[in-house]
Amino acid sequence: MQPFVELTAPACPLPLSNVDTDQLIPARFMSRPRAEGYGDFLLHDLRREAGGALDPDFPLNAHPGAKILVARRNFGCGSSREAAVYALADFGFACVIAPSFGDIFASNAVNNGVLPATVEEAEAETLLAAVGAGAELTVDLAAQEIRGAGPALRFTVDPVWRTKLLNGWDDVDLTLSHAEAIAAFATADAAARPWAQLRAERGGGSA
């Protein structure tokens, strides 16, 4: 995974709260393989007018080239679909700034190298106004600072996620280094909680 250290880029204001993952990517697009790219599906229905043409006034269409998204509270609430992050990342976003995030979305974002940066509601409003007026932002993960909209703002992010993003770490490799502990746990657990175990079905596959 690509590390995230510091990013200076154009930003896009999205002055909406509760932007759920159904908005970020409508369910009907999620059967496609990731290799085809998910960028075109980002906020697919919100970006378009009733006839299907792109709405030139919608922020995403009015701020081409943006890599940072600023939104209101509870961004990414709803379903666990990681495709919501694929759509953001494939569109070009590497960071979303909001007063709060859906837990599963935030975790999915970090697993794809996208930074969910949490700020106070009033700070989000400041940033929305600044980037709406065309300000470019610098998001500095090492210093946990956002610069470019008046005095530098401090954002919060889970310290473990911060380390993971700064280094571009992948969880699976880390976990596999604990393989012995996992095997030992499983053996002890099978003896301690026989009722919690399931047996493989003959032949696997169809039950």
Binding site: A83, D171, I182
Partner: peptide, 15 residues
């Protein structure tokens, strides 16, 4: 609920 990266992690490690 978990995302696809976590689903893959659980499939590979049961953790």
């Amino acid at each position: 609920g978990i995302g696809a990266s976590e689903v893959a992690h659980v499939l590979m490690t049961q953790t």
